[in-house]
């Protein structure tokens, strides 16, 4: 058994008085895309925000390569090598694409240039609009910028929250291709409602319901298992 990169155990998170996460556990293994699935409000996005320290959990443990990261500040967690693409993408619309990357870049090292080349290979549009204001990009381009931005740093892990949201099917295909290419550079946790995207990218899956992880397994199993899909995702056929 390979040692997991990220191990989340029994975390509980409150937003105000509301007990949102009530025992979430999962493990993320290197070389894989782990997909978190579940209905709206099941606690997937909250889980990502808890990992980032934006919504610190009240109980449980989160370990990044055996190092506890619960209780650290978001910027400390980020510096340990976790990139985050929030649901609203978190693009700086008033800044240019270049400046967006400049904010994201923590340290310039020997490999920065190499990483930028990789980013431009995967997302050629970003090179094209390098000097343009991010706010003027199309929805798909903004999503690509959001995903690409954390990659200027040497990250262990990339958390992506609903990259398909609000995008046309043809662009979703494009994003799927891009994330496929990213798999060799970083480990990915994907929160996704779009089952087509989730199933074409995921290796491992975790099902969320009412703030808990209720099922886990290989993506192939879930694709076959009509009952699970119907019960937790509302997908039939």
């Amino acid at each position: 058994m390979v040692e997991p990169i990220l191990k989340v155990e029994e975390i509980h998170t409150f937003i105000g008085k509301h007990h949102i996460l009530q025992g979430v556990s999962f493990a993320v293994h290197p070389g894989k895309v782990t997909v978190l699935l579940g209905r709206n409000g099941a606690g997937k996005s909250t889980t990502l925000r808890s990992i980032m320290g934006l919504l610190p959990p009240s109980q449980g443990t989160i370990n990044l390569k055996n190092r506890p990261i619960k209780g650290l500040k978001p910027y400390e967690i980020s510096r340990l090598g976790i990139g985050f693409v929030p649901e609203d993408r978190g693009i700086y619309n008033l800044l240019t694409v270049e400046e967006n990357f400049r904010v994201a870049m923590l340290q310039e090292d020997g490999k920065t240039r190499e990483r930028m080349e990789t980013i431009f290979d995967i997302f050629p549009d970003l090179k094209k609009f390098w000097k343009a204001k991010a706010g003027n990009l199309s929805g798909g381009q903004k999503q690509m910028l959001a995903i690409a931005r954390p990659l200027v740093n040497q990250n262990e892990l990339l958390l992506i929250d609903e990259p398909s949201k609000g995008l046309a099917p043809i662009i979703i295909d494009h994003i799927i291709d891009s994330i496929h290419m990213l798999k060799e550079y970083t480990v990915i946790i994907l929160v996704e409602q779009n089952f087509y995207m989730a199933s074409s990218l995921g290796n491992d899956f975790y099902l969320f319901d009412d703030g808990k992880t209720v099922h886990q397994g290989q993506m192939e199993e879930l694709i076959q298992n009509e009952e699970l899909k119907k019960k937790y995702l509302g997908i039939s056929g």
Partner: peptide
């Protein structure tokens, strides 16, 4: 640049590793 980014979205500045 970071300050301008923060005017727009302070949370993302944190997420990107800046105190």
């Amino acid at each position: 640049t970071i300050v301008r980014a923060g005017v727009e979205n302070p949370e993302m500045v944190q997420v990107m590793g800046h105190n």
